[in-house]
Simulated assay, not measured.
Amino acid sequence: MNIGIYIYQNSEVLDFSGPFEVCSTANRFLEQPHQVLLIGQSTAPVKARGGFTVTPHYSIAEHPPLDVLIVAGGIHDQEMFNQPVINWIARQYTRVNVLASVCTGAFLLAEAGVLSGLKVTTHWQDIANLQARYSDVEVCSDLRWLDQGKIITSAGISAGIDMSLHLIERLYSRQLATQTAKQMEFDWQTN
């Protein structure tokens, strides 16, 4: 299984590193580990919020087939108009089993047209903006994460860890998700 995490300039660090840590920690308990892959528009280093620099493993043009794609949030104003990326997200929606977003990553999913008619969530500070911009999406404010089947969205920043633990539960088992949270010494909020 391949779990991809899309990152871009000014991504929120915990939006991608939290899910990465959850998925890689879960691997410690699996006989057949999944791969956790950071994906950028290119493989050039990405400068995330606060100046944290990370190098993607793959580009959107060349990566293994994905089973799950998680889109990080951050300063998304330019990224949501990056047409090659938006087109790639729309294509991945037709290929992956689960497409998820952390925080304002929901704006990229909405721009790709994959949230129409769904209930979603995002960072509390961006809820009104997401609702106003995409009137065909119902934005919820009272949940840390929201599972709508193929689409899972989470509220801001640390909520992506809760969502990722839910993803591990969904892909594997409640026991593995609980074991992963314990290993991370994280107080999992299951909604």
Results as ranks from 00 to 15, higher is better:
residue 1 M to W: 09
residue 1 M to S: 06
residue 3 I to Q: 05
residue 3 I to P: 00
residue 4 G to L: 03
residue 8 Y to E: 00
residue 14 L to F: 02
residue 15 D to M: 04
residue 15 D to N: 04
residue 18 G to Q: 02
residue 19 P to N: 07
residue 19 P to K: 09
residue 21 E to N: 14
residue 26 A to H: 03
residue 27 N to P: 05
residue 27 N to I: 09
residue 27 N to S: 11
residue 35 Q to A: 14
residue 37 L to V: 08
residue 41 Q to K: 15
residue 43 T to Q: 15
residue 43 T to G: 12
residue 43 T to L: 07
residue 44 A to K: 15
residue 45 P to M: 07
residue 45 P to Y: 11
residue 46 V to T: 03
residue 48 A to H: 01
residue 51 G to V: 04
residue 51 G to Y: 03
residue 52 F to V: 15
residue 52 F to I: 13
residue 52 F to L: 13
residue 55 T to S: 12
residue 55 T to M: 12
residue 56 P to Y: 00
residue 56 P to R: 00
residue 58 Y to N: 13
residue 58 Y to H: 15
residue 59 S to V: 13
residue 67 D to V: 06
residue 68 V to Y: 03
residue 70 I to D: 08
residue 70 I to V: 15
residue 70 I to R: 09
residue 70 I to Y: 05
residue 71 V to K: 01
residue 72 A to G: 03
residue 72 A to W: 00
residue 73 G to M: 06
residue 74 G to Q: 02
residue 75 I to Q: 15
residue 75 I to K: 14
residue 76 H to Q: 14
residue 76 H to K: 13
residue 79 E to P: 04
residue 80 M to A: 07
residue 81 F to L: 13
residue 81 F to I: 13
residue 82 N to Y: 02
residue 82 N to H: 11
residue 83 Q to P: 05
residue 83 Q to R: 09
residue 84 P to Y: 01
residue 88 W to A: 06
residue 89 I to C: 09
residue 89 I to P: 02
residue 89 I to L: 12
residue 91 R to W: 05
residue 92 Q to F: 02
residue 94 T to D: 15
residue 94 T to W: 02
residue 96 V to L: 07
residue 97 N to A: 08
residue 99 L to I: 14
residue 100 A to C: 10
residue 102 V to G: 09
residue 102 V to C: 04
residue 102 V to E: 02
residue 103 C to E: 08
residue 104 T to F: 01
residue 106 A to L: 01
residue 108 L to D: 00
residue 108 L to T: 10
residue 110 A to R: 07
residue 111 E to Q: 15
residue 112 A to L: 07
residue 112 A to Q: 00
residue 113 G to N: 10
residue 113 G to Y: 00
residue 113 G to S: 07
residue 113 G to L: 14
residue 114 V to F: 08
residue 121 T to I: 05
residue 122 T to E: 10
residue 122 T to K: 12
residue 122 T to N: 02
residue 123 H to A: 13
residue 126 D to Y: 12
residue 126 D to C: 14
residue 129 N to V: 14
residue 130 L to E: 02
residue 131 Q to H: 01
residue 132 A to D: 13
residue 133 R to L: 13
residue 136 D to G: 13
residue 136 D to I: 10
residue 138 E to D: 12
residue 139 V to H: 12
residue 139 V to D: 00
residue 140 C to G: 01
residue 140 C to L: 14
residue 141 S to T: 14
residue 143 L to K: 15
residue 147 D to G: 04
residue 148 Q to S: 11
residue 148 Q to T: 10
residue 150 K to P: 10
residue 150 K to I: 11
residue 150 K to T: 08
residue 153 T to C: 08
residue 153 T to E: 04
residue 154 S to A: 15
residue 156 G to Q: 10
residue 157 I to R: 04
residue 158 S to N: 13
residue 159 A to H: 04
residue 159 A to E: 11
residue 159 A to S: 15
residue 160 G to Y: 02
residue 161 I to V: 15
residue 164 S to K: 00
residue 165 L to S: 05
residue 166 H to V: 00
residue 169 E to M: 11
residue 171 L to S: 06
residue 175 Q to M: 00
residue 176 L to T: 06
residue 176 L to A: 07
residue 177 A to M: 11
residue 177 A to L: 03
residue 178 T to D: 06
residue 181 A to H: 01
residue 181 A to Q: 12
residue 183 Q to F: 03
residue 183 Q to W: 09
residue 186 F to M: 04
residue 186 F to C: 03
residue 187 D to Q: 07
residue 191 N to E: 08
